[in-house]
Design a protein around this nucleic acid. Structure first.
Lengths: 327, 327
DNA sequence: CGCGGTTTTGAAAGCGTGTGCATTCATCGT
DNA sequence: ACGATGAATGCACACGCTTTCAAAACCGCG
């Protein structure tokens, strides 16, 4: 049914090896013969079967991309950049979507069976054992957005504490005194670092959070938690959110209550997703250097795929404060 | 390097055939022997190589997913649902990102070389010839969000005209007289249908568009075009946008100009992306039945993969009006 | 114990490709 | 003209797996 190299060979009156060589850059074959073969292949709609090719020991060119709920603006923004960059390196992203809370291991296992050359893991929790198993299977991994404790794999991650220190500085500069926090799921790496980073930076200024609440990184949860904060007896004059999506929800909550942002309450987020710059929000936030993160991660990964054996490296990329209207 | 079935066979003291059978559901093998083999495989970290397996004529389980700029909220929302549904059918999405305006053919060609079982095409333009080539290569395709002229492939698509008719009805009901349109790229299927659907429905009510402008389906472009419309001598009292992202931009534009929505100007979009429901927008829009669309598309596709040969079918799913605050 | 029938089992033949190896062929220098 | 050189070519094997096929083992029953 599917047209193979044998078909092309028969039609072109050459051996199958010749067909293979015609498609191999720099192989020893007469130029006009190659042209003829390629023409016949074109006519028949033939393309070398990459599965079979990879069987002989070559790479598949497949990169597993483990990513969380794509409905989140941050995740989809990230995947947009990542998938483009993977393609521009001549590789192909095999998407492995995992729901929050879902185990990553069985899905990744299955992806490994596709002989992926490597994996970029941007969601779910991965321990050292899993990382080692992947590497042992010839598929090095790079973890993005968190640092692997135990150091089983390379990782690239924004410097969350530094980002929060910038926020704290801005809070002090604008004279905020009653500062509240809306975080995400307590067990996520970024949430922990951002929370600790904020409290530490505030403590250095002699300040402390007056209230802390927990959302789930969605806009809706940010709105719900902000409504609770802003209707409490001692209303905060600033709300720091663990990510931009919740901050956007918080702005919506303030508006609904008739509060002015930033005069009555300052609001800020983290990541600088595209929507943060939309005028109705104009969110002051910390820019997560996603493009640089992706580049660094892919560079690390391709090096490992090429066989580099050195110690695992952890890259921390510096974020930048984006001052807009909301704080 | 990578552990193969031979390794497992040697370690378990059986033949390679036995190992293969142990992993094949319903194969003829003694239960305790299978258990033993599976245990050994587990110890060695063995999983059958899916590339090699697919070589014998079986399916790869790979579905190429051609999708456009994921930074767009609609696209990422769509991909979120699609990827989950693909996984829940036991298949795997091979992501093929294409930039707007970029040719889809070379990318899809390359994906075909991975022996994908089929393809879901939600971006780029596909003609009948390309569709036939895919089908001939054993990879049926289904086109989503547009209808293939010439009918070379199944397609699933929202009934854009019906949606616009609902909008027109609402416009009349709220007494709008000067209605403007902000569309997307002129050559896209959804843009053409939505525009024609709106003008036709308005004409049936004795109305006509007072102004039309062209954006590119992004929030920024919606804002730019809406600013132009709302500062023109004859300001419209309603703006219909080709999608939600532009409508959100239009709301931002109205706010910046100090206009009240919907009192001074009604604004509506199309798709009902998650952000449309966010309170600061509360966008009246037409709900694109994305989940149903995805299900229908995958059902069609899996049937084709199973070998169904019938005539191509075009499924039109009915949209629904979502009345919120903006119109 | 023998025999028909049913499972289990291992050997071997592919699946489509890349490539080492030996062979052929053209080319070139002397 | 002739041997040396190098490119071009075809054969055959390897990759890891599934599956057919025939042989072997097992079962129940007379």
């Amino acid at each position: 049914m599917r047209v193979t190299a044998d078909d092309v060979a028969a039609r072109a009156g050459v051996s199958r090896s010749a067909v293979s060589r015609a498609f191999t850059e720099g192989a020893s074959i007469q130029p006009d013969k190659r042209a003829h073969i390629l023409q016949v292949a074109e006519d028949l709609g033939y393309r070398p079967n990459l599965m079979a090719r990879s069987l002989t020991g070559g790479a598949t060119g497949l990169i597993a991309v483990v990513v969380g709920a794509l409905s989140s603006p941050y995740e989809s923004w990230f995947l947009d950049i990542l998938s483009q960059r993977i393609r521009s390196r001549g590789l192909w992203p095999l998407l492995v979507p995992v729901s929050p809370g879902q185990e990553i291991e069985p899905a990744l296992d299955h992806a490994l069976a596709y002989q992926v050359d490597g994996a970029v893991i941007a969601a779910g929790s991965v321990n050292q054992k899993l990382a080692e198993r992947c590497t042992a299977n010839g598929a090095p991994i790079v973890v993005v957005g968190r640092v692997l404790d135990g150091g089983g794999a390379d990782s690239v991650c924004c410097d969350n504490r530094a980002g929060m220190a910038m926020i704290a500085e801005r809070l002090v500069a604008t004279g905020r005194r009653r500062i509240a926090w809306i975080g995400g799921r307590a067990d996520t790496f970024s949430n922990v670092e951002r929370f600790e980073g904020l409290t530490a930076a505030l403590a250095a200024q002699g300040l402390a959070l007056t209230d802390t609440r927990r959302g789930d990184y969605t806009t809706d949860s940010g709105m719900v938690q902000a409504l609770a904060l802003l209707t409490a007896p001692s209303r905060p004059d600033a709300i720091v959110c663990g990510n931009d999506a919740m901050a956007i929800g918080a702005i919506a909550a303030a508006r609904r209550l008739g509060l002015r942002v930033p005069e009555d309450v300052g609001i800020c987020g983290f990541d600088d997703i595209p929507a943060a710059a939309w005028e109705p929000f104009s969110l002051t936030t910390v820019a997560n250097p996603v493009a640089d993160t992706v580049d660094a991660a892919l560079t690390l990964l391709t090096r490992r795929i090429a066989g580099e054996k050195g110690a695992v490296s952890t890259i921390r990329l510096p974020p930048a404060l984006r001052l807009r209207q909301s704080l």
